[in-house]
């Protein structure tokens, strides 16, 4: 799982010289699954870690600000994050991301069905050993 075509040059060179890289590039979807849908003019994205270590990592890494910055081109509004440790999940609410909502939006994804998949493509940096633990389902 560590050998990825999108790994950084540093990671690749560390591999050649035999030292372990301190962090590697992954996508959120390597350690979590998600579901999204519309809520009026906005949408929510539930993000579920595969395991507890992954949830701890998401708690510290996947802030509301970070999700807001990622979705900035879609003008998500003031992103709110809710924590559900019992489900190892975070719920993000993006109040204006649908540009008018299911009934008015002209966009191909008027109902926010793709937002979960988009968020799972978010690039993240993580310690490789920690990644191995977070990726376990």
């Amino acid at each position: 799982m560590l050998y990825r075509p999108d790994r950084s040059v540093e990671a690749a060179s560390a591999e050649i010289t035999g030292t372990l890289p301190t962090s590697i590039a992954i996508r959120l979807g390597d350690i979590a699954h998600a579901r999204s849908g519309d809520k009026g003019g906005g949408a929510n994205i539930g993000v579920l870690a595969f395991n507890e270590e992954g949830f701890e990592f998401l708690l510290s890494t996947l802030s509301a600000d970070r999700v807001a910055a990622y979705f900035e081109p879609m003008q998500p509004g003031e992103v709110r994050r809710y924590e559900l440790p019992n489900l190892l999940a975070l719920n993000f609410v993006l109040p204006t991301v649908l540009a008018g909502g299911g009934s008015r939006s002209l966009r191909i994804d008027a109902q926010g069905k793709c937002l979960g998949q988009i968020l799972l493509e978010m690039p993240l940096e993580i310690d490789p050993q920690r990644f191995a633990r977070c990726a376990r389902r």
């Binding site: 699954h33 998600a34 579901r35 849908g37 519309d38 809520k39 929510n44 539930g46 579920l48 709110r80 809710y82 559900l84 489900l87 999940a89 719920n91 609410v93």
Partner: peptide, 12 residues
């Protein structure tokens, strides 16, 4: 668990 989170706002 995915469906629990479908189209919800504040889970509390």
């Amino acid at each position: 668990k995915e469906q629990l989170l479908y189209e919800i706002g504040d889970p509390k």
